[in-house]
């Protein structure tokens, strides 16, 4: 996912990726930094990462999208090139209040990419179109 985040967040993901590749762990100082930059949704996103909740869907056309299973079991489709999530937290905290950079689902997608733990799944082009448009569940 090309980053659309402030430089500090981009650097943080790079540090997490590098450290995790070397030690298979995320040290405390980076976890604290994650909490500092992203607020309370950082911990919730890490839970989603632990549960391997992020899947990268791809279709024969080459189109890709992230699908994140929320805590309630609901699936949220997120775009790979810009920030949008149909969850209520994104609508309220990010869009309406402008108080957060991301919701936990998009942050989980970033973290899974950095850690290399994103699940992969193929769907048809038509399924991808319906997922992207929000008109159907997979």
């Amino acid at each position: 996912m090309p980053s659309l985040l402030p430089a500090v967040a981009e650097q943080l993901f790079r540090d997490i990726q590098k450290t995790y590749q070397e030690t298979s762990q995320i040290p405390d100082d980076l976890l604290i930094a994650l909490k500092f930059v992203f607020g309370p949704c950082a911990l919730q996103a890490l839970d989603l990462v632990d549960q391997r909740s992020v899947t990268c869907l791809s279709s024969p056309s080459g189109r890709k999208a992230f699908q994140v299973m929320g805590g309630s079991g609901r699936l949220y489709s997120c775009f790979v090139s810009c920030h949008y999530c149909p969850c209520p937290a994104f609508a309220y905290t990010v869009l309406r209040r402008n108080e957060g950079l991301l919701c936990k689902h998009i942050l989980a997608a970033y973290l899974c990419q950095a850690l290399g733990v994103t699940e992969e799944e193929s769907v048809s082009d038509q399924q991808m179109s319906m997922l992207l448009s929000g008109t159907a569940a997979p």
Binding site: S61, D125, Q126, M128, S129, M130, L131, S133
Partner: peptide, 10 residues
């Protein structure tokens, strides 16, 4: 939304 989302189809 569906028509734009379908633009990637062959």
């Amino acid at each position: 939304l569906l028509q734009i989302a379908s633009l990637h189809e062959s």
